[in-house]
Amino acid sequence: MGWFRRKRRVEATDGSDGARAEAPDPRTPWPEQHVPDDPHAAAAEFWRTWAELLPHLSAALGEGDTERAENLLVEPVAAVHPGLQFSVDRGGTAIYALVVSGREDPELRPYTDAWKAAAPPDDAIWEYHDSVPPVPDPAGVAVNFAGRRFELGEVRIVAQVDDSDGVVDVAVHHPLFDEVDDTVRRTMTFLPLDVTLGERLAAERLGRVETAVAPPSNTLTLVEFRDLVRRLAGEADPGGPESDASS
């Protein structure tokens, strides 16, 4: 399932503006979706349903059918709030991770907070996240997209920090950007940032985001960029592969 953060302006360094998403046809009626009044009651109901679904989820995942597993969760997640998105991913410490995200929408935050607060403890099989987490080592990630293989270890970032609020404006470059169209560039501009920072930190700390087609100077690797943003956010270095990159 695709993940989308709140919209930001994306500009190419050649001066062309990022394309705007087309608005839905106003003549098309939008189906009414129920929004629970009580986030905590909705969360409790989800976890009751989760316990009932676990054998079926385990069977689907044991057969390698992630799509079937996710289909089982579409209605339960929507019952918490129809604006939430989710995915079943590989876990960081557990085998699987269930990620339920409100894309840092403040109206959805009470529902993801209640969902996470009511979640069972992480165990060896499942871990639970209320926003998309960062990967441990983005330099080791490769994304096959639009017929190209984007090695995230080749991404370079130009970062400019606004000292007044700690927000970071960035330009993102990959060597393949001059071989793909604007749509692919936009996707591969934001995806490395989310993979590196995680959804919540990216939403809190990123300001203006640009696509750099030509190789820029004074760049950072993704790991070095994450170290910078985490320092700005006052987060302790968690160690691991990324902790050595900026030393």
Rank of each mutant, 00 (worst) to 15 (best):
G198M: 06
R148G: 04
W126I: 09
R149Y: 02
A159L: 11
N144T: 13
L152D: 07
D130V: 08
D182S: 10
G140W: 07
E154A: 09
M188I: 14
V180D: 11
D165S: 09
R156Y: 10
R185P: 12
V180W: 11
I157E: 15
T211D: 01
R208G: 03
V184G: 03
Q160A: 09
I157C: 14
D123L: 07
F150K: 08
L201C: 01
I157V: 15
D181E: 14
H174N: 09
V141D: 04
A139C: 11
L201K: 10
L191T: 12
D182Y: 03
V184Y: 13
Y128H: 04
L191K: 10
T189R: 04
V195I: 11
H174E: 02
F145H: 15
A124N: 01
V143K: 12
I157D: 06
I125F: 02
G153D: 02
V135F: 11
V184R: 00
R205I: 04
A214L: 05
G207F: 13
R148W: 10
R205T: 06
S164Q: 00
P133Y: 10
A212W: 08
R149Q: 09
P215K: 15
F177C: 10
F177Y: 15
L197Q: 08
R200Y: 04
P133H: 03
L206T: 09
V158A: 11
D122I: 12
L193S: 07
G198P: 13
E154C: 11
G166L: 01
V167E: 00
R205D: 06
V168E: 06
A146M: 14
V172R: 00
L176Y: 00
S131N: 02
F145M: 07
G140H: 04
A124M: 15
V141F: 03
H173S: 14
I157S: 09
L193E: 04
P133D: 12
H173Q: 07
D137W: 04
A171Q: 07
D137K: 05
L191M: 15
T183D: 13
E179V: 13
V161D: 01
P133V: 03
E127H: 11
D137E: 07
V132K: 14
R208Q: 13
E179L: 12
E127K: 15
L152Q: 05
Y128L: 05
L201S: 07
D163G: 00
V132W: 14
E199C: 09
D137L: 10
E210L: 12
L152G: 07
